[in-house]
């Protein structure tokens, strides 16, 4: 036996989870919504998805090559960003806008800030907001197969029925309409312990309670407000982004409460019919402060008797 052992710091075993594994779970969790979007909006939805995912992965690959950094596309986070972005776009979005949006998400929001873990705001959400402002992309009404043919239902006079909202057969972004598909994915993330319940439950709960009051204590209309628009996808998949949301349970609760309140304020009193993206973006910016306020008390440093 030679002196074969490497001198290494403990611990010497690991739970086996990896960044790539977590991102793979997120991709799996988004499959039902992708499938629902394709069924509802047709094959072009799939094209948008493929373009965004491919563009995001490619831009990260190129960025790393050009700046001579270690390759990170293997961790699948760029693919997640691409998929999330696509699911937040209307099906009739011009393809070139998808490419520009992906470029913005990956290069401007993520890579220039130092890559995964260092971005201040969520790349997919920021790109969505950027596209809304730059191209008015989301103002273009989607053309749903057989549902209300105007803009997103939040702007429409007549809300679709609860069942329609639940299944997703109405106008909106590709991946945001089917509450059912998103819930399946969300539950998968909870079961796999990729996320905890705090953000989705508090975010959605806050919007429900606020809407309940605003809609004159009409539970059905409040439920419609929850299921319509980007709330469910936002609460399960965008607001739970590790990098841009607080780590501790209380931090998450505070973050989600803020996001829920802002969503409602924008929806009811703002100029845009949909407030989820702006609300999450705003809370992303507050995350470092929330993180500081909600730091766990360290055992043995007093006050913990």
């Amino acid at each position: 036996m030679s002196s074969l052992t490497k001198l290494m710091i403990s611990p010497h075993i690991h739970c086996g989870r990896s960044t790539g594994g977590i991102m793979r779970d997120v991709l799996i969790a988004l499959l039902p919504a992708t499938l629902a979007g394709t069924l509802i909006f047709g094959l072009r939805a799939l094209l948008v998805v493929l373009v965004c995912v491919a563009a995001c992965v490619l831009f990260e690959l190129l960025f790393n090559l050009i700046t001579k950094q270690a390759q990170t596309v293997g961790d699948l986070s760029a693919a997640v960003t691409g998929l999330l972005l696509a699911l937040n776009l209307p099906v009739n979005i011009p393809i070139w806008q998808c490419v520009v949006g992906s470029l913005f998400a990956i290069v401007v929001v993520k890579c220039l800030f130092g890559g995964i873990g260092n971005n201040l705001v969520n790349p997919a959400i920021t790109a969505r907001v950027f596209m809304l402002v730059a191209f008015g992309s989301l103002a273009i009404p989607a053309f749903p197969v057989d549902a209300v043919a105007s803009a997103t239902p939040l702007a429409a006079e007549q809300m679709p029925s609860l069942m329609t909202l639940f299944l997703g057969n109405y106008g909106g972004a590709i991946g945001e309409t089917s509450t059912l598909a998103l819930l399946i994915g969300g539950i998968y993330l909870l079961v796999r312990r990729v996320i905890t319940w705090h953000i989705p439950v508090v975010f959605i709960g806050t919007v429900f309670v606020f809407s309940f009051f605003m809609e004159g204590f009409d539970a059905v209309r409040a439920l419609s407000m929850v299921m319509a628009g980007g709330l469910v996808i936002g609460a399960f998949f965008m607001a739970t982004d590790y990098v841009t949301s607080p780590a501790t349970p209380w931090g998450k609760v505070l973050f989600a409460l803020g996001a829920g309140l802002f969503t409602c304020l924008i929806r009811y009193f703002g100029n845009y019919p949909e407030g989820v993206s702006f609300a999450i973006l705003f809370m992303n910016i507050l995350t470092p402060y929330i993180g500081r306020w909600t730091r766990r008390k360290v055992f043995g440093t007093g006050g913990d008797k």
Binding site: S18, T19, I22, T72, I116, N118, V243
Partner: peptide, 8 residues
């Protein structure tokens, strides 16, 4: 790899 701030 880089810290993803997952909070684990």
């Amino acid at each position: 790899t880089a810290c993803i701030r997952c909070g684990a």
